[in-house]
């Protein structure tokens, strides 16, 4: 199967920074998997995600989507963003509309869908994310977990084939987290590729089917969770063993 993304030697440095955020990053991201992207703060997870739907453009190197090199024209970006969606780390950055239903309708309408089709998609996404009772609410009168689910619905209404979730889990409680995992599982069952940036070992161990470890803007490891969790020297080298000490790493 063609991988969704292929990064080859991608370099990117933020304006005014002396260090690179992505420093010759090369990775192949398989399609249809539940992928955990792990790495310390500043290792380049968010920067990687923003490259995946063309919000950032590599200063060097190349990215392919479904085997095709990225093109940054208006119409190709539009197509790309229809298929690759990002749920941002802080839902407050994403929710702009005064009402939940209207916020969710924003993406589908931008795809040029009719109002009737958009209304159908809003309803469907709301049902999937269990927020139908919130559709009428203003977006500023929601709890953290509700905001996360609304942000998720806003992205799912575009029916993307790849969903990138950037540390979505860090700000919400474990119960709200379960809701999110349920949504992600439904997406996975429908063949959606999911990338989740996380620090949580249990996500890597029990949820992910593929893991990418980032370190200083490069890929330190990519492979299955079993391969990672049995690779002692790598866990030491990436300092993951330090934070995952509570869980017995070897079976």
């Amino acid at each position: 199967m063609t991988p969704v993304f292929e990064f080859s030697d991608v370099r990117f440095r933020h304006n005014g920074q002396s260090d690179c955020a992505l420093c010759g990053l090369t990775v192949t991201i398989p399609s249809g998997e539940k992928i955990a992207v792990v790495g310390r703060n500043g290792s380049g997870k968010s920067t990687l995600f923003l490259h995946c739907n063309g919000l950032y453009r590599p200063q060097q190197g190349q990215i392919r989507f479904n085997g095709e090199p990225f093109s940054y024209t208006r119409s190709s970006l539009r197509q790309l963003r229809q298929r690759v969606a990002i749920v941002f780390q802080n839902p407050d950055d994403q929710l702009f509309s005064a009402s939940v239903a209207q916020d969710i309708s924003f993406g589908p309408l931008n795809l040029g869908l009719s109002q009737a089709e958009t209304a159908r998609r809003v309803q469907q996404a709301a049902e999937l994310c269990a927020i139908t009772h919130l559709l009428d609410r203003p977006t500023h009168a929601l709890s953290g977990g509700e905001k996360a689910r609304v942000a998720m619905a806003g992205v799912l209404a575009m029916e993307p084939s790849v969903v990138l979730a950037d540390e979505l889990l860090s700000a919400i409680d474990p119960w709200a987290r379960l809701d999110i995992f349920e949504i992600l599982q439904t997406l996975h069952d429908h063949g959606t590729t999911i990338l989740l940036a996380t620090h949580d070992l249990s996500v890597v161990r029990y949820w992910a089917t593929y893991v990418i470890v980032l370190q200083h803007g490069t890929v330190a490891f990519s492979g299955t969770p079993q391969q990672l969790l049995h690779n002692h020297s790598l866990l030491e080298a990436t300092e993951l063993s330090k934070i995952w000490w509570t869980v017995k790493l070897e079976s």
């Binding site: 923003l50 739907n53 919000l55 539009r78 963003r81 229809q82 969606a85 990002i86 941002f88 802080n90 407050d92 950055d93 994403q94 702009f96 509309s97 009402s99 239903a101 209207q102 916020d103 309708s105 924003f106 993406g107 309408l109 931008n110 795809l111 109002q115 958009t118 209304a119 809003v122 806003g154 992205v155 575009m158």
Partner: peptide, 23 residues
């Protein structure tokens, strides 16, 4: 925050007009 707003809007296909469903 304004910049992050812009990214989030662009990610959902913003093209200069905030279209939403009428209530």
């Amino acid at each position: 925050q304004g910049r992050r707003f812009q990214y989030a809007l662009d990610a959902r296909g913003f093209d200069g007009e905030l279209r939403v469903l009428p209530a």
